[in-house]
């Protein structure tokens, strides 16, 4: 059986205030964020506006500003902040003994989505 949580490596690989990317074969690339105060969040790496790579934005507080058109996205909820509207899926993250884990079922493409793609 697959473990429930997917180990994606040590916390030290992402500097606070930065993000890193995790491509998923058959699924959406994930952006993993490390905020300046040491928390980790993961979102699908696509701005709800024009699919900009959120991983490349400036991280401040617990939000990220998309590099394409400056939409501000909440790292907690994936929702666009301010006057903009839209939402990007979030992936549950936990940190344990210095390693980052993502909830596997949120990372791996769902059956339905895959079949739809194949159809």
């Amino acid at each position: 059986m697959q473990a429930k949580w997917l180990d994606i490596g040590p916390v030290t690989q992402i500097e606070p205030g930065m993000a890193a990317t995790l491509p998923v074969i058959g699924g959406d690339e994930i952006a993993v964020f490390h905020t300046m105060r040491g928390e980790f969040y993961a979102l699908v790496n696509k701005c709800p506006h024009k699919q900009g790579p959120l991983s490349q934005g400036i991280v401040h507080g617990d939000s990220v500003t998309c590099p394409l058109h400056n939409w501000k996205i909440s790292l907690r909820s994936g929702e666009a902040l301010g006057d903009d509207e839209g939402c990007v899926p979030t992936i549950p993250v936990k940190v344990d003994a210095g390693r980052i884990y993502l909830l596997r079922e949120a990372v791996v493409p769902a059956k339905a989505a895959l079949q739809a793609e194949a159809a």
Binding site: I14, A20, T21, V24, I25, G26, V107, V108, K111
Partner: peptide, 18 residues
């Protein structure tokens, strides 16, 4: 080099596609 590389690539096990 961390700015230019992915953390890893997730390759789902075949069972997860089934």
């Amino acid at each position: 080099s961390d700015l230019h590389s992915h953390l890893a690539t997730v390759v789902p096990a075949p069972t997860e596609y089934a």
